[in-house]
Design a protein around this nucleic acid. Structure first.
Lengths: 319, 319
DNA sequence: CGTCGCGTTGCCGTTTCGGCATCAGGCGAT
DNA sequence: ATCGCCTGATGCCGAAACGGCAACGCGACG
């Protein structure tokens, strides 16, 4: 997670690098030092603490139980060091820091870039890193300290994660504007029987929500594409290949220009909603830049939800 | 706060020592190193961070605003290091650690020693330090990291403190068992007009509670001793010098043996109660030994409150 | 005015650290 | 089995950092 200030002993920096690289030589490459130096620091740590911190297995290292304990400490220390660094810079009148966020591809369409734009990087020393990964990996990335923030759908509560904000967004059917279905105000899954389905892949959170209401037999034969990308799903719909299920996240532009239509999906009388949440590591205070970015994201999420609710209301009126 | 394991750079240890000693040479003496070594580390830190951390004023050093920020980080790191240390020891099957508690003299009569006894130090490597100080200093000691736990009356809520437990205890009049007042079930301050008063000194939290219900004119002329010690107050009552006001804390033995009587004090129909709270530094996780000790204290506090309530109930029945 | 304690700085021996070359061992392809 | 390649570990040596000693400048106090 970029450069930190050198208040702390190199041993804990090396330890952290070895942990995340799962390899001494790999960590040494990333740190631009000789592997022997890294190795020695790890060995010193182990003798000082009187415990093995890593299991040496062919092809790399893996944390022992004691290593896990130390890793948590080191992560806490380094994150707090980063926060302290930006606090000191803020005292000197500078806006500095680095924000690392783990999120989904679809959120890079509108919310995340808008937030970065609002943050106003020009003239500051703030840098932003965006890591796109599958839903399931996002909580781990945040908990391990590889990202300050995680933005994802349907994250299960975890003791080591803190939910900073969340909104509930409507799942719906996405069709071409010229499609006859586009005139409907609301749909159930049964209404889609004549169409080819483009479903999110298993590593998408919304997949499970759809499957739970849709029986497997319904899907079989009619599922055309098992898409691992929101962009892919969107493009397939745009090309008339089929219809898809998603929230309005990731297709904001196409909805605005009217090329696509998002029709709320119902299971009986209840709308199917998906929870978009913003998460951080529990317990550790966040650098001011990260806090500011989180606030911006929270605001944008609320705006999205408001737009979603408005949409749902007009639907109710019509239906 | 005793020895820590040397995972971390000596610079932050030196910084912490200088901060608490408010002096470089003083810190050097405590650390058993040359003052020049300490000085150099501080200067290095300042150049690395690009800010002055201490104001050099004749007679010692004082933290600057930047120094305060770094101090908070260092305190967090060192406390978490200590917790990690004990967690690693626990993993190795050892019970180790150090518990530093800041409290009042009166609580050393029964609750604190009972808790230490229950902790069962024999056979373990756990050590306990008890620091007795005025009520007002206890929150600061905990917030600054000089003590893990603080046990005191009527602590005002602070953002950097966390209340782990609290009980409300009855304030009352303490008289000799042979005194005619001893037969009363409840008293108001007016009932005490014929007696010489032994009041807690201004640095005791309960003083303010009494003064707020007692007008200054009531006190003047009848106050005999302005006592800065619970033991002193107790002994004065035992010697027939006057009557005193306090909770049942600190005179448990004398109440049990029947030499003294504690009569609940009322302001009108409302009993006057004082809140005894157990506090820790906000945000930082506590070492397991500290956590265990805090739990024991919490239990004892609850027991005290239960006894106090029972006493109050019997009073209500009689009155 | 001298003295005392303070933080600071130059000098120097010791310790620590990092880079290089090397060794021993596991894995996979040949 | 061999060979190549990767891994972590270990001597060796120059460089950098650290700590101890002595001395300096400065302000406070008597």
């Amino acid at each position: 997670m970029s450069t930190r200030f050198r208040i702390h002993d190199s041993a804990i920096l090396y330890f952290d690098a070895v942990r995340s690289a799962a390899s001494i030589r790999g960590a040494a490459r990333r740190l631009n030092v000789a592997s022997s130096a890294v190795n020695r620091q790890i060995l010193n740590l182990e003798t000082e603490l009187g415990t093995r911190l890593f299991d040496r297995l062919p092809g790399g290292l893996r944390l022992t139980a004691a290593g896990e304990i130390l890793a948590e400490h080191v992560t806490t220390v380094l994150q707090d060091a980063e926060r302290t660094r930006s606090a000191l810079d803020a005292l000197a009148g500078l806006r500095t820091g680095h924000i690392e966020i783990a999120t989904l591809e679809g959120l890079c369409q509108d919310i995340v870039p808008s937030a970065i734009k609002i943050l106003g990087l020009q003239g500051s020393r703030i840098t932003v890193g965006v890591d796109v990964m599958p839903t399931a990996d996002i909580p781990d990335a945040v908990a391990a300290g590889n990202a300050h923030l995680g933005l994802a759908f349907e994250v299960r509560p975890r003791a080591d994660l803190q939910k900073l904000a969340s909104v509930r967004l409507q799942l719906g059917v996405v069709v071409l504007a010229k499609s006859p279905m586009a005139r409907q105000a609301a749909l159930t899954l049964r209404d889609c029987s004549d169409h080819q389905l483009i479903l999110p892949r298993a590593n998408f959170a919304n997949r499970e929500q759809l499957i739970s209401t849709l029986s497997e037999s319904d899907v079989r034969g009619r599922m055309l594409v098992d898409a691992g990308s929101i962009t892919l799903m969107k493009q397939l719909v745009l090309n008339g290949v089929g219809i898809s299920f998603m929230t309005r996240i990731g297709i904001e532009d196409e909805l605005k220009t009217g090329r696509l239509v998002h029709i709320p999906l119902f299971a009986g009388r209840k709308p199917i909603v998906s929870e978009l949440g913003l998460y951080a590591r529990r317990g550790s205070a966040r650098p001011i830049a990260v806090e500011a970015f989180a606030n911006i994201l929270t605001g944008l999420m609320a705006t999205s939800e408001k737009a979603d609710r408005a949409r749902r209301n007009t639907v109710s009126k019509r239906g």
